[in-house]
Design a protein around this nucleic acid. Sequence first.
DNA 1: GATTGGAAATGCGGTTATAA
DNA 2: TTATAACCGCATTTCCAATC
Length: 235
Amino acid sequence: MELFDSLPDTMFFVKDRAGKYVMVNQTLMHRSGKKHKKELLGHTASVIFPGPIGDNYTQQDLQVIRDGAPIRDRLEMYHLPHSRRQHPTEPQMGWCLTHKFPLRDKEGQVIGVAGISRALPRPDERSSLYARLAVLSDHLQKHHAEDLRIPTLALFTGMSEDQLERATRQVFGLTPKQMLMKIRLETASQLLGTTHLTITEVAHQCGYSDHSAFTRLFRNVVGLTPSQYRATLTH
DNA sequence: GATTGGAAATGCGGTTATAA
DNA sequence: TTATAACCGCATTTCCAATC
């Protein structure tokens, strides 16, 4: 556990069949706003993170336990209320990649779930690919509202689709599609917090022609519906 | 106006095999 | 080791309807 405690950007946990914490690392303890690990043990994420976000975490845990199938590389946005920030300069929102794996006994029965949630790494600026992909990132920022396709983006960078995917994973830790989704949802969260646009209008400005699809995606990634998210910013 | 859900289509990602 | 191609399963998107 000392090993996991030494990872400042990675939350680690083990939960039992009921989705209750049995092991956590320091980073998770801090992110939950608790001072001692034992304050988390024996509780589900719904209890530790009250509200829809915690419910979403618990639903994920129970899904892994029920289906026995891991969750890999799930891009998620997290939102830190003022009370949970360790330092006033700590950003209010951030991104992480979450992995959850079922734990099994000798008979193969699922007895719990283990997971890590890693803060998205800073782009690798030392990579020789960084300059080309920085242009792509800029392009995505400017044109995220358009109907962008991976083959088009590959042509834009002068790479094959496979080269592009390997390159974005190497430099940004994300697939091209995840990069686009991240930029779109960052724009959406900004619009929800700074404008009075309707959800439909926000969806359109972020490149989603169907507001219902936008709402579902937003809830999957952020853990809140757009209107719930807007409410957290105004309270 | 916002959210949820279903059905169908399709684009994308993961995996594997092969070649350079 | 890296690049490419092919295949398959799944997630995403679109369209539509219902409900609040």
